[in-house]
Structure formats: C-alpha cells, structure tokens
C-alpha cells in the first residue's frame, strides 16, 4: 500500500518566451518557473501548495496533472509516472485548472458535465446518475443552475461546475489550482467544506494551490510554501507557525489610496528599511501593513515607521503587536528571499 499519493522530486521547468520589441525584433527569454521542486502528498490528506502570484504553483500543477513535461525531475501519482504513464495518471485524478473557463459557453452546466462524462467513458444511466450526484454535491442543484447556460453562470457557479467535473469519475485524487480564487465567501466556504468532507469521509487525497493563508489554515493538513520556483518551507500549520515562534508580528493600519498600492509597498519598504513586509488593501483607502521582527526590535521599528509615515504625510490609524500567524510566516519566507 502506497503511503504517498503524489511524489515530486527535483522538478525543474524553464519556459521559453519571446519579448516583442519593435516591429520585427523579438528577443528570446528563459523564464525559470521551477528550480527543483520536491514534495510528497500523503494519501487521504488535504495538502496545500502556497505561494504568491508567479511562484510556480500552476506550473507544478500542470506537471503533476501530465499537461506539462518537466525539464528535469520526476513525479508520480499513485505510483504512476506523470511522463511515461500519463494516461493512467489521468484516470486517477480529478482536476480543476481554472474557475472561470474550460467549458462550452452555450451548453448548460448539466450538458457540459454530460459531455465530459462521456469522454471519460460514462454512459446511459450510470452517466445520468453521476451527473446528478455531482450537481447535487457541489450545490448547483440547490442554486437552480443545472439547466442554465454556462455563459450565464456567476463565478461561484463556474467554480462549482469545475469541481463537479473533477468529481465526475470519482477519482481518488483531486488536484485543484486556486479553486476558490475570486469567489464570494459563501461559495468559497461550500467548496472548502466539501473538500474536507471528501478527504475525511471518502478518503480522497486533495492537493490545492492557494495564496490565501486563511484558507490553508482552515483545511490543510500539510502545506508547502513555494516561492520563486523553490519550496521554501514544508510542514503542518503548527510546525510552520513555530518557525516564526521567535518572532513578533507588527501590524499597522495606514492610509493608502488604492491607486498607488503596488508602488507603496516598495516605497514603505525603502522608507523603513525592511523588506519582509506585507501590504494588503482594505476598504476606504486604507491598508494593512505587516512586518515580522525579532522580539525587542518592535519598539524601534514602530517608532521609525511612524516617523517615516508622518513625514511623508501617510496617516497611521492603528498599531498592534501579536504572535505571528501563518500569513506572517508566509511573508517572512517569501519576501525575504528575493
């Protein structure tokens, strides 16, 4: 009996792209998307692959789901090699690559599922039964959306339909690339609860990617943090939090017009001379700033920051110091390395 449902060892992937400049000129550029990614997913667990945008999550997912060949390294799913036994791998995985596309616009949700079910060899009563089951399971029935055209679906419905398709052939493994991105809290919660239920009650193995720490904290048994094509941390949520146990998190609510947020992060980082910070836009032109510091440093940093903000005309509304959350660990591990 296999212990690991998914094993990845030393995955390397370089993309070749062309920068277009001028009418005829093109310049070749290599994007190093993965620089040696290894991790294992234990059977029956919910595993989270965490990382900021562009970290290499989708690339990893595509390799594991057989859609992309690694340049180096090896990956297996249920013991099948993703390169040489791709067809077998595809039979045991259910995948969602995107919550907003991958279906035919002018077919209803039910028709789309029926079509993809047929491609998987389901037919007749069995097909109808499975389609109804998964529609029910993801809550599309309850929303009365089964017979609506896909183009009329809300994002939440589209995400549910994508999950339904992944479950159609009752695979032991689910691989989901940002399954809740952009969804309203209710839809996101439905999907999360369903994933946990599938793992606990039906012994399915679930791999999700996300950049939402809150989500990872809620449902993942193990997480791996990926940044800039490398796994920078692996463990249970508790273990990861302990990594930052010798640190403190400083949280400030400051004024920040949304229009300049991207620039603001760099500016603040320069102002206070700290790179490991996270900036998250809030409502009403405010933003939450997180800084991870060593105990004892917090007072100096706070004083320095407030002074810097004050002299630059940035209002500070609130300052708080607390134990690090997973999000602070994430900031510590992903911001510092660049």
């Amino acid at each position: 009996m296999l212990v690991n449902a998914i094993e990845a060892k030393g995955l390397v992937k370089n993309y070749v792209t062309w920068d277009r400049r001028g009418f005829f000129k093109r310049k070749k550029r290599i994007v190093k998307a993965l620089k040696g990614v290894s991790f294992n997913v234990i059977r029956g667990e919910v595993f989270g692959l965490l990382g900021p945008n562009g970290a290499g999550k989708t690339t990893t997912v595509k390799i594991i789901t057989t859609l992309l060949l690694p340049d180096e390294g090896k990956a297996t799913v249920m013991g099948y090699d993703v390169v040489s036994e791709a067809e077998k791998v595809r039979e045991v995985i259910g995948v969602t690559l995107s919550v907003e596309k991958g279906f035919f616009w002018k077919l209803t949700g039910r028709e789309n599922l029926k079509y993809f079910g047929m491609l998987r060899g389901l037919k007749g009563r069995e097909l109808d039964r499975r389609v109804e089951e998964v529609l029910e399971l993801v809550g599309l029935k309850e929303l009365g959306a089964s017979d609506k055209l896909y183009e009329e679906y809300s994002l939440g419905m589209k995400a549910r339909l994508a999950l339904a398709r992944a479950l159609l052939h009752d695979p032991p493994i689910l691989i989901l690339d940002e399954p809740t991105i952009g969804l309203d809290p209710m839809s996101a919660r439905t999907i999360r609860e369903l994933l946990v239920k599938l793992a606990r009650e039906e012994d399915k193995t679930v791999l999700i990617t996300t950049h939402n720490m809150f989500e990872a904290e809620l449902i993942c048994d193990h997480v791996a943090i990926i940044n800039d094509g490398r796994i920078v941390a692996y463990g249970t949520i508790g273990e990861l939090k302990r990594r930052a146990a010798d640190r403190l998190a400083v949280e400030m609510i400051i004024a920040a017009p949304h229009t300049i947020l991207g620039d603001l992060e760099a500016r603040i980082s320069k102002l206070i001379g700290i790179r490991e910070l996270g900036l998250e836009p809030l409502e009403e032109g405010r933003a939450r700033l997180r800084i991870v510091v060593k105990p004892g440093e917090e007072e100096v940093i706070i004083a320095k920051s407030i002074e810097a903000f004050y002299s630059n005309g940035i209002k500070v509304y609130q300052v708080r110091v607390h134990e690090p959350t997973l999000e602070d660990v994430f900031i510590l591990l992903t911001k510092g390395s660049k």
Binding site: K62, T65, T66, L67, E87, R90, E91, I93, V95, L97, S98, K101, G102, F103, F104, F116, L119, R120, R165
Partner: peptide
C-alpha cells in the same frame, strides 16, 4: 483560449 485543450487531454481525449 478557453482552456479546452487541457480539459480534453485530462480525459485522455
């Protein structure tokens, strides 16, 4: 552009 290539490959089609 609709990501349908991947979705078909995943069903071994």
């Amino acid at each position: 552009s609709q990501g349908l290539v991947e979705e078909h490959l995943l069903t071994n089609t």
